[in-house]
């Protein structure tokens, strides 16, 4: 199994303190008005006296999907799934900030960095991991609701938690935009209805659907034309054209 960094989240432990959000903001210098992670709230609008568990808080962030639509939407490959650790990465140097990837994520995990002018999102804090630290949100979580690790490594806490909860693992997936997220929730997480339909922008759709084949066809046609001309000139008319004056020339001369 290929390495896959992932989060296994026991959302029942989350008390919506937002420690993860601020930790991430500081660790990654996320600009004002934007966040790389979130806590979704599902609360009963009219709670009933005597009832329990009438609210649930669900931490999340980029889910480093197996079928990331954001990667499909990127024209340059600045956004890509890194086979080395399974994370979806953004090459800031290659990203031109076209924004195509942003609506492509059903989880709204991406935003366009207003200063750097590139797409930005959770990257599981590689600078921290290099130093032997956990991602900022995981490290700071008061109840350790977020568990991080390589789920392909059976010795990781994340993999163990997954294994121990076989059959009761949930993923927040919208049926028409299933990107196979690598964010696993222990059963009964909520809310579940918040992802939006993943959409590819019209220009990107046009690029893949008809500009790509269309332009290729045109180039093919031009190439075929050149090939036909070359074939005619150098193969068929080789004998008659020794002087370097082909029939075209000749007819012109006549005209």
């Amino acid at each position: 199994m290929k390495p896959q960094l992932a989060m296994v989240i026991d959302s029942a432990k989350c008390m919506d303190c937002k420690g993860c959000m601020v930790a991430c903001k500081v660790a990654n210098e996320v600009p004002g008005g934007h966040f790389r992670n979130w806590i979704k709230v599902k609360e009963v609008a009219e709670p009933r006296p005597g009832r329990g568990r009438q609210g649930h808080f669900q931490p999340g962030a980029c889910m480093h999907c197996d079928k990331p639509m954001c990667v499909d939407a990127c024209p340059t490959g600045a956004t890509f799934k890194d086979p080395k650790d399974g994370t979806v990465k953004i090459d800031r140097a290659l990203c031109i900030g076209c924004g195509n990837c942003i609506p492509a994520c059903p989880y709204g995990a991406r935003y366009r960095h207003p200063v750097l002018k590139v797409a930005d999102k959770c990257d599981y804090c590689p600078e921290r991991r290099e130093r032997g630290l956990l991602p900022a949100c995981v490290d700071t979580c008061p109840t350790k609701a977020r568990v991080f690790g390589d789920i392909a490594d059976p010795d990781s806490e994340a993999a163990r938690l997954l294994a121990a909860n076989q059959g009761r693992i949930a993923r927040v997936v919208r049926a028409d935009s299933d990107t196979k997220p690598n964010m696993f929730y222990l059963a009964d997480t909520a809310p579940a209805d918040w992802p939006h339909k993943a959409s590819i922008t019209p220009p990107m759709l046009a690029l893949t659907k008809w500009a790509l084949p269309g332009v290729s066809a045109l180039i093919g046609l031009a190439a075929a034309g050149v090939a036909a001309m070359a074939a005619r000139r150098f193969l068929i008319e080789r004998d008659g054209g020794g002087s370097g004056h082909g029939p075209g020339h000749g007819t012109e001369k006549e005209g």
Binding site: R129, E130, R131, G132, L133, L134, V138, D139, V147, F148, G149, D150, D153, D155, S156, E157, A158, A159
Partner: peptide
């Protein structure tokens, strides 16, 4: 090592840690 202990426990990336 404040950083390392917690991380090793969770991530299983022993080499990196």
């Amino acid at each position: 090592d404040p950083g390392r202990r917690n991380f090793l426990k969770a991530a299983g990336l022993l080499g990196a840690g």
